[in-house]
Design a protein around this nucleic acid. Structure first.
Length: 284
DNA sequence: TATGCGAGTGGCGTTACATCA
DNA sequence: GGTGATGTAACGCCACTCGCA
């Protein structure tokens, strides 16, 4: 599994910015604004491309990895986070596919791996080995012990591709995917939950790194400005002559910040004075 | 021993439905 | 009978956690 890290050049800003409920976002926003103001340009914020980027043209130009039935399902019913709003009662369907027994909690459909895939797929072939993510033979023999299930590479890859298309599944998609991969719907559901959680975790790590860099940059900028201020104050005390210049004679060109001579204004004169005191920094 | 990851559990939000005033 | 308030069940998701490979 590859996690692509994109540093900039992303249409979407920082993920945390998108969530106003996160306390982090305020800090980040301020830091980013501050940096942008100082630089005069907006550096593209960092973003970890863990979440699948859904191409705008994705329906018209399907990728080689696209899953037709999923796209079809999308056409029928858009998902994202509307599963609650648009969900339809599938309890009976799921329960049927989900063993319908050995339920340890309302959300966990099964705590053992007893499953006859021949019921679901019409074939109970040799793919149902534990390594392939199907029924574990040990579980068949010993229902009390649960062996660690590992999905096969093919199953993982397929789930990954599906996740790239959309990070959540509606019940139809879940059932279809489970059927296609020879897994229980609950397994597909859990895989997507875990995948979302780990994506979020990775993104958080990247966010933290970005915040660190922001903090360092701002600290450095602050240090520089403090130093500059000290120099200005020193100049002000040692060369009071500049402070006695008529305020109406000097100003700054707003566009290039060079000295102009025949406009007036006390504020701009102050700016000019500061500029001269700073050694004409703007005249590079 | 550390790590990845599949899975269990509890809590929360949302929706549909039933009941009652 | 229609309507709004309230309670409840079902469902999905998330955060946390465990434990196996």
């Amino acid at each position: 599994m590859e996690l692509a890290l994109s540093l900039g050049d992303t249409p979407k800003p920082f993920s945390l910015f998108e969530n106003p409920n996160k306390g982090f976002s305020i800090v980040l926003e301020q830091a980013q604004k501050s940096l942008e103001e100082k630089r005069g340009s907006s550096d593209p914020p960092i973003q970890l491309n863990l979440l699948p980027s859904t191409p705008v043209h994705h329906r018209s130009h399907p990728s080689p990895h696209q899953i037709p039935w999923l796209n079809h399902a999308l056409d029928v019913e858009p998902i994202a986070r509307v599963t609650n709003a648009n969900r339809f009662r599938l309890a009976s369907v799921e329960d049927t596919n989900d063993e319908g027994a050995a339920v340890s909690s309302p959300n966990s459909a099964a705590s053992s791996f007893r499953m006859d895939f021949s019921i679901m797929n019409g074939n109970g072939d040799a793919r149902n080995s534990s390594r392939e993510g199907g029924v574990d033979s040990d579980d068949e023999e010993n229902g009390s012990t649960r062996k660690k299930l590992r999905l096969s590479k093919e199953q993982s890859a397929f789930l990954e591709e599906t996740f790239k298309e959309h990070t959540t599944l509606n019940p139809k998609q879940k059932l279809a995917l489970a059927k296609q991969l020879n897994l229980r719907p609950r397994q597909v559901e859990v895989w997507f939950q875990n995948r979302r959680a780990r994506t979020k975790l990775k993104q958080t790590e990247v966010d933290c790194e970005y915040l660190k860099k922001c903090c360092e940059t701002l600290t450095e900028e602050n240090r520089r400005l403090q130093k500059e201020l000290q120099e200005l104050r020193a100049l002000k005390t040692s060369q009071p002559f500049y402070m006695q210049l008529p305020a109406t004679t000097l100003t700054m060109c707003p566009s290039c910040e060079r000295v102009a001579t025949n406009t007036t204004g006390a504020a701009t004169a102050t700016k000019q004075t500061a500029s001269i005191a700073a050694g004409g920094r703007h005249q590079k």
